[in-house]
Amino acid sequence: MTPIDPDATQSALEANPGLPSDAQGPVFREPWQAQAFAMTLALHARGLFAWSEWATMLGETIKAAQAAGDPDTGETYYHHWLATLERMMAEKAVTTRSDLTTYRDAWERAAARTPHGQPIELKTGDFVR
């Protein structure tokens, strides 16, 4: 994985006060969480959104989840992060919700056939609709 720019990380921490972190920076329980964080930093660096815009949308996502019963224990923070990233990319027409669904479903099919501990590889057949 590509190292994350420390200055970008600091900006993200300042803009997102709920971000799970310790003295060294963001804390991730799963590799996908670090990847979602890194993708967000990269998209921000490319000027797709301002941190204030991101923080507002992430807050909306978290509030909606709380209203739907999320206990807000911190366990679901990166699920909200990823949902926000998907929503923002769809709203900015970087991708579509349909494409996101297609790739998520393909990933789930690939993961289901992959033995534990092996790399997951997407194949053409994973994209059947």
Rank of each mutant, 00 (worst) to 15 (best):
G25S: 07
N16F: 01
Y77M: 08
P20V: 05
E14W: 09
W51V: 06
V94Q: 08
T9I: 07
T114H: 08
P115T: 11
E30S: 06
D126P: 05
A90V: 08
D7L: 11
Y77W: 15
E30N: 13
L82S: 07
E108N: 14
N16Q: 06
D105T: 09
V27R: 08
S11A: 15
L41C: 14
R46Y: 02
A34R: 02
A23P: 09
Q118V: 15
A83S: 12
D70F: 11
T114K: 13
P119S: 13
T114I: 06
Q33S: 02
R109F: 02
A50S: 15
F37K: 04
Q35N: 14
I120N: 02
R129E: 10
D105F: 00
G59S: 12
Q10T: 13
T96K: 12
I120C: 05
V27F: 00
V128Q: 14
P31Q: 12
A112T: 03
A38T: 01
Q118I: 11
A15T: 04
M57Q: 15
A112C: 11
A111H: 09
A45F: 04
S98I: 07
F49L: 01
W32S: 09
V27D: 10
S52A: 15
A15K: 04
A36E: 00
W81N: 04
L100M: 14
A8M: 10
A83W: 03
A112G: 07
T9D: 05
Q118M: 15
W81L: 08
F28G: 02
P115N: 13
P115A: 12
A83K: 04
P20W: 00
A23Y: 07
D105M: 12
Q118P: 05
E60T: 13
L19P: 00
A90Q: 09
M57P: 01
A42T: 01
R104D: 02
A38W: 02
H80P: 01
P31G: 08
D22G: 13
A38Q: 03
P26G: 11
D105P: 08
D5P: 04
A112I: 04
A111G: 04
G125L: 03
F127R: 02
R87S: 04
M39G: 07
